[in-house]
Design a protein around this nucleic acid. Structure first.
Length: 454
RNA sequence: GUGGUUGUAGCUCAGUCGGUUAGAGCGCCAGAUUGUGGAUCUGGAGGUCGCCGGUUCGAACCCGGUCUUCCACCCCA
């Protein structure tokens, strides 16, 4: 009756060392969110299926984890129909709940449900796991953490600015050099119209988005298949190839968009945002990228994506503006803009670039060696004193061989060991050993606390 | 979801043509050293060869299925 223990595909255990490193990332993001005045929110891991379905497109619906109803899950079905029922029809009858797919939709649900309690504009952050039944790959998991911040109830572009400042601050603090790419869905619409693909918008953006992956030729081929106007190909190519500065690109686009209302609006927004950015001068590069089109399902204005400069990896953070997310829950006309950090990918990148500090991140500063008997009591008193002064410390739980206890401190990367045996006890002192350089000195309890406080 | 890939000790990996008792390095445990970790030496423990089935006198090795890993597509943090 023994089986080999394992965990579901795409999920992971986090060992102590990893939890400490991950906490560092979460704490960094949380403290920046706090600094900018965002308020914390948590929502349930599971939502009603009706909340989740239809929000992420047909592909997204397939990636939802559904939860089988409790009790007899066939209760809600007519058993006579079961032999020829389709899975699409059966699914809602036996699974009313599902695991959340992102944090934005639960947030929209929350805003509508609590509309009378919240003051607009409402700035919230949320750091919780989400689940997607995707095929796992590197940097791609079925359970992963998102760290969202959204502002809802304000159309001002200073919100976009603030979110970009947050992104800049978080990655600077973590030591990751990034490029922040900006686009605007209205600009994309203007482009599509300008090349005669206004009615093939989705196909147009999907093709465009692949540029950095498959190259210019493949993109053009795909656009030809969509029926791009041949005269416009050259125009588009010149836009895609040039390494224009933001203002050069914008003036090119302005010419292109004189016939497109949408394009003009989008361009105005982009210009305004870049001029706002000029006043704050972020440390990381912020670039316009007219090929950026991801996460398009509900974005209507600004689109944001962040990638690491020193490493080819998926995006570390994404976001954008959505004009009417709460409309589907019965509260129209509320505009929001938000971002989401992918903590798991940030972890992977930091690991690969060796950006985590060496040695212990968190944990005890000192290990008391246990000599048993009266010596043990002598150490216990000192332990209590150190802890009451906020110094994380522990004692080896049994009077094992000294070699073993010192090796334990070494394995745990505890920087100091205290030896307090008969000699020390009689003199009222403590021998503290620096594990790094093996030096030892004899000190009083107060001196010990003073030394460890550093 | 489609196509491919991977799996042998805690970790990284050998393992010949299908042939007797499946190996190495690192790590772990014990000792050399009864108040001192990392270095060295000696000894030791540790395996359902991912799992299930098939072919064969005989399978870590061949075949089928399945799970897992990673990759491409799709999509995305």
């Amino acid at each position: 009756m023994s089986y080999k223990p394992s965990i579901p595909k795409g999920t992971r255990d986090f060992s102590p060392d990893v939890v400490n490193k991950r906490s560092m990332i979460f704490n960094t993001i949380r403290s920046v969110y706090d600094l900018y005045g965002y308020q914390p929110l948590e929502t349930p891991a599971m939502e009603l299926m009706e909340t989740l379905t239809g929000k992420y497109g047909a592909e997204g619906d397939k990636l939802l984890f559904k939860i089988l109803n409790s009790g007899d899950f066939l209760d809600g079905t007519n058993r006579d129909d079961l032999p020829d029922i389709t899975s699409q029809k059966l699914s809602p009858l036996i699974a009313e709940k599902g695991l959340r797919y992102d944090l934005t939709v639960p947030f929209a649900r929350y805003v509508v449900q609590h509309r009378n309690e919240i003051t607009l504009p409402f700035k919230r952050y949320q750091i919780q796991p989400v689940w997607r039944a995707d095929r796992p790959q590197k940097g791609r998991y079925r359970e992963f953490y998102q760290c969202d911040a959204d502002v809802i109830g304000s159309t001002s572009l200073t919100n976009e600015l603030e979110l970009i400042q947050i992104i800049d601050a978080v990655f600077s603090r973590l030591g990751i050099k990034v490029t922040i790419r900006l686009n605007n869905r209205k600009v994309l619409m203007g482009l599509a119209e300008a090349v005669g693909l206004g009615d093939r918008f989705t196909g147009f953006t999907i093709a465009l988005d692949k540029l950095d992956k498959v190259g210019l030729e493949a993109v053009i081929n795909e656009l030809r298949a969509l029926g791009i106007h041949p005269d416009k190909e050259v125009l588009l190519i010149s836009l895609l190839q040039s390494g224009d500065k933001p203002d050069q690109l914008i003036s090119k686009l302005r010419e292109l968009f004189h016939g497109s209302e949408s394009g003009r609006l989008g361009l105005e927004e982009m210009e305004k945002l870049f001029s706002l950015l000029d006043t704050v001068t972020p440390g990381n590069a912020v670039e316009p990228d007219i090929t950026l089109a991801r996460g398009l399902n509900y974005y209507t204005g600004t689109i944001i994506e962040v990638v690491a400069r020193d490493l080819q990896f998926g995006s570390l953070c994404g976001g954008g503006r959505y004009d009417d997310l709460t409309g589907i829950f019965g509260m129209p006309g509320l505009s929001g803009v938000g971002i989401s950090f992918g903590a798991d990918r940030i972890f992977d990148v930091m690991q690969e670039l060796h950006l985590f500090p060496e040695g212990q991140i968190d944990g005890p500063k000192v290990l008391f060696v246990n000599f048993g008997g009266a010596d043990e009591l002598y150490s216990l008193k000192a332990l209590e004193y150190l802890r009451s002064h906020g110094i994380p410390s522990e004692m080896y739980p049994e009077a094992a061989k000294l070699k073993k206890q010192i090796a334990y401190a070494d394995a745990r990367k505890i920087p100091y060991a205290v030896l307090a045996g008969e000699t020390e006890r009689e003199m009222g002192t403590y021998t503290i050993k620096n594990m790094h350089n093996s030096t030892q000195q004899s000190v009083t309890l107060d001196q010990l606390a003073e030394l460890l406080r550093k």
